[in-house]
């Protein structure tokens, strides 16, 4: 149990630092439509059995810290809370036959296989990114721009998620 908490705390800090020190600078250097967003991996890899409320609050905490770094009060917090709320719904859709196996399962390739994992991650990131860009614009007048940014960021985030999972092999 302590291992689970420790690994999540470390993931939280690692992703936060990577997001704010590396990806934020890279995004602004490349262009307006290019956003590298990797920190939602933290909420995605929370244990399956964690209550939704707890996931939302932990996700909101990560969002608040990211907002401090990005100087966008409330925007990342809102998106993180929303994607954390969606996560159990997405997991229920892609749940393997017989349920999640093992002690303290997480939705990682180790537990559900690469294909299911990538499907879950794609839907989860789509929810997060679409909400994030919608709140950023705060109007659906720019629906085209919101959709384009979501698609580009989704592709980048999926690549980063794949790299992350290959590097750290979360169990």
């Amino acid at each position: 149990m302590n291992n689970v908490i420790l690994s999540n705390v470390l993931r939280f800090l690692g992703l936060y630092l990577a997001q704010t020190l590396v990806f934020k600078q890279a995004s602004s250097a490349i262009g307006t439509y290019f956003h590298i967003i990797a920190y939602p991996i933290f909420v995605l890899l929370l244990p399956v059995m964690i209550p939704t409320s707890a996931a939302i609050l932990v996700g909101a905490l990560m969002g608040v810290m990211i907002d401090f770094a990005y100087d966008t009060p409330g925007v990342h917090t809102s998106a993180s809370a929303f994607s954390a709320f969606c996560r159990p719904l997405i997991l229920a859709i892609f749940e393997p036959k017989g349920g999640f196996a093992g002690k303290d399962p997480v939705p990682s390739p180790h537990h559900v296989g690469w294909q299911t994992f990538l499907q879950v991650a794609a839907v989860y990131f789509f929810a997060h990114l679409f909400w994030y860009f919608s709140v950023s614009e705060f109007t659906f007048v720019y629906f085209g721009s919101i959709s384009l940014k979501t698609i580009i960021a989704l592709a980048v985030s999926m690549v980063l998620t794949g790299i992350y999972m290959s590097l750290f092999r979360t169990k």
Partner: peptide
């Protein structure tokens, strides 16, 4: 109460706070 009643209430509360923060502290929004 929040843990027992599921995520929806938590989400609504968090989003309500976020909404207030967003429109108050972000010029564009």
């Amino acid at each position: 109460l929040l843990f027992q009643k599921g995520g929806f209430v938590t989400l609504v509360l968090v989003e309500a706070v976020c909404f207030y923060v967003i429109v108050t502290f972000n010029t564009k929004q």
